[in-house]
């Protein structure tokens, strides 16, 4: 997919390579780079996913990185009902119904 100047896109860059990360980190964290993602208005004329592009963030700061998405979805949602919690709720409501009201 091609994205163009003035599209709202997300870029990715490596902030620290594994060998640049502090030795005190847990091994699994030090095995991978420190990465950053940021969104902005594309400045580069046109680009494909994976290309290096320039963007202007919402504050107007310029950043360069690998184009990873055009207007990415937030993606998070409400999930599904948790039957274990639903059941707990039902039990509680029943319990309260059976409980004598206080004065």
């Amino acid at each position: 997919m091609t994205s163009y100047a003035a599209d709202w896109v997300q870029i990715h860059k490596i902030i620290l390579r594994p060998d640049e990360r502090p030795k005190t980190l847990p091994a699994e964290t030090r095995a991978v780079p420190l990465e950053m993602r940021v969104k902005g208005w594309q400045v580069t004329e046109s680009a494909e996913i994976g290309d290096q592009v320039r963007v202007r963030t919402v504050l107007g700061r310029e950043q360069t990185g690998e184009l990873i998405a055009e207007n990415p979805e937030y993606g998070h949602d409400f999930g599904r009902a948790i039957p274990e919690l639903l059941a707990a709720g039902d039990e509680l409501v029943a319990m309260m119904r059976d409980m004598p009201k206080e004065d």
Partner: peptide, 28 residues
């Protein structure tokens, strides 16, 4: 999901959100 929501909230108020992977070098 909880973290993604908190980041979205920052964006809705107009912040530039630098989203980092795990690590205390966030401070850097």
């Amino acid at each position: 999901p909880e973290i993604l929501e908190k980041g979205r909230a920052c964006e809705i108020y107009g912040a530039e959100v630098m989203q980092l992977s795990v690590g205390p070098e966030l401070f850097y």
